[in-house]
Simulated scan of single mutants.
Amino acid sequence: MNNYLAAFSATLLISTTPTAFAASAVDLTVKGTLTPLACTPMLSNNGLVDYGKISRQDLSVDKRTRLRDQTLDLTIQCNAPARFALLMRDNRDGSAIVNSEIYYGLNHDHSHNKIGLYSLNFDPASTVVDDLTQVYRTDSTTGGKAWSSSNSQAIPIGARSYLGFTDIAGSSAGPIAIRTLTSRVTVETVIAPTSELDLSAEVLLDGSATLDVVYL
């Protein structure tokens, strides 16, 4: 019995020896590029979309109600031609009535019910880039590592997908360098059924999002 235990102990020692010599440290690498490029985005009306007061009689009891579309003018001015993409962050994250990266929340009512959602839609036909005659949009779901084939279809901007612009149809090379971009963007807003809301008092639509310029 003692010989068996001795052999078993030796086996354990041999099998665990490699982990005893494993490294006790790991390297951290921090990378990045400081660029002299600077692009400034601006929205008309200070980015405010105000629907005013909406009567509950104008809202559906059991269905979602889409409000009238609103438009804003977007201008992005760069100090030199720059390759960039657009991304939007929801400052009311988790309050949209549909869980999707293209929908943004309108916050909650007094009983913490989700009020609705909205999206911000870009149309290449309403977008002007420098002196180009036509603009196409291209998208990346991989943080700019790969890009979709560019096309002229309108698209809502996402919270996790890059949106860029190019002058070549069917290109997957990504966005071109741009100095000035102007676009008329459309805000589409939907309100939850009133049966799902607490309308015992006024409910404020409180959507807030940040449009980011991502340098490539």
Score class of each variant (00 low, 15 high):
residue 22 A to D: 12
residue 93 D to L: 06
residue 30 V to N: 07
residue 115 I to V: 06
residue 98 V to W: 03
residue 44 S to W: 08
residue 146 A to N: 14
residue 56 R to K: 12
residue 155 I to Q: 12
residue 85 A to G: 11
residue 175 P to I: 03
residue 103 Y to W: 09
residue 92 R to N: 10
residue 147 W to D: 11
residue 129 V to E: 02
residue 29 T to P: 02
residue 153 Q to N: 15
residue 203 V to G: 01
residue 118 Y to F: 07
residue 23 A to W: 05
residue 175 P to K: 04
residue 212 D to H: 11
residue 15 S to C: 09
residue 208 S to E: 14
residue 201 A to P: 00
residue 109 D to N: 02
residue 120 L to K: 01
residue 104 Y to E: 04
residue 15 S to L: 11
residue 26 V to C: 13
residue 25 A to W: 09
residue 164 G to Q: 06
residue 206 D to W: 05
residue 193 P to F: 07
residue 1 M to Q: 02
residue 205 L to Q: 01
residue 185 V to H: 03
residue 19 T to C: 10
residue 113 N to T: 03
residue 182 T to H: 12
residue 29 T to C: 05
residue 130 D to N: 15
residue 70 Q to N: 11
residue 6 A to P: 06
residue 2 N to W: 08
residue 173 A to N: 12
residue 32 G to E: 10
residue 121 N to F: 03
residue 149 S to F: 05
residue 179 R to C: 11
residue 33 T to I: 14
residue 204 L to F: 00
residue 45 N to Q: 15
residue 29 T to L: 10
residue 187 V to I: 15
residue 177 A to S: 13
residue 106 L to C: 00
residue 185 V to W: 01
residue 80 A to G: 04
residue 146 A to I: 13
residue 38 A to F: 13
residue 68 R to V: 13
residue 184 R to Y: 01
residue 9 S to I: 14
residue 81 P to C: 09
residue 147 W to N: 09
residue 117 L to T: 01
residue 28 L to M: 11
residue 54 I to E: 06
residue 65 T to L: 08
residue 96 A to K: 03
residue 185 V to A: 03
residue 95 S to P: 03
residue 40 T to E: 13
residue 64 R to K: 03
residue 30 V to D: 05
residue 209 A to P: 01
residue 58 D to F: 04
residue 120 L to M: 05
residue 7 A to Y: 02
residue 62 D to N: 13
residue 131 D to I: 09
residue 90 D to P: 00
residue 154 A to M: 12
residue 201 A to V: 05
